[in-house]
Amino acid sequence: MYYNVCTMPVEELLKRCLRKERKAWDEFVRSYDNLVSRSVRYKLKSMNIHACGAEIEDTVQEIFLYIWEKDKLRGVSDVSCLEGWIAIVSFNFTSTCHMRRDARDIRDTHSLEEFHTCDDVSVSLGEMLESPTLNTEDMVYTNELVDLVENEVLKLPVKQRLAIKFNMYDGKKQKDIAEIMDLPISHVSTLIKRAKNSIRKGIKNIIDV
């Protein structure tokens, strides 16, 4: 089967894992291997990193080793949070691991000031790159607008601010926000609506919305 189902209660499994029982640990790895693997894949995808199956498998093993060696499971106070905790640990480990690799790869990068000879003409790398057409006036206007909206968002009450940020900044659906914030969908919908109205009122003096 694709998913391995834990045969013993999770609480018992955690206790035995903390006692470093080999059998319980094997069970733990079997049960959560899929979740860790999925989290690693998701994180790599969000970081625009292409990794082969073997690399992902290596990272998954390193994560379990890290949890084992650092005795990280002691930090889990409630079994209902275990899956979320494993996903967070996997995300953090993957990003840290790849940030270190990126830092190593910096040595192989080239400066835009570096000169290259092409058809007996010496040009810098920066000159070889096409410059995108920029409209400074538009950019200034957009930046001012962004600052204005950001200031209005900061004035909102906490719940409204969080809901609007999940919705507008992170692109989360109202149903998902309701699940995250542990609120009814109708409440989330109201929060977002009120937040939008407040922002609209705040920037009305500057632009026509």
């Binding site: 979740l35 999925r38 989290s39 998701y42 994180k43 969000s46 899956e83 979320g84 996903a87 967070i88 995300f91 969080l162 940020k165 999940f166 900044y169 992170d170 989360k172 998902d176 699940e179 995250i180």
Partner: peptide, 12 residues
């Protein structure tokens, strides 16, 4: 916030 959002997606 991104972490919470990502974890929610993965768990879902």
């Amino acid at each position: 916030r991104k972490m919470v959002s990502d974890v929610h997606t993965v768990l879902k």
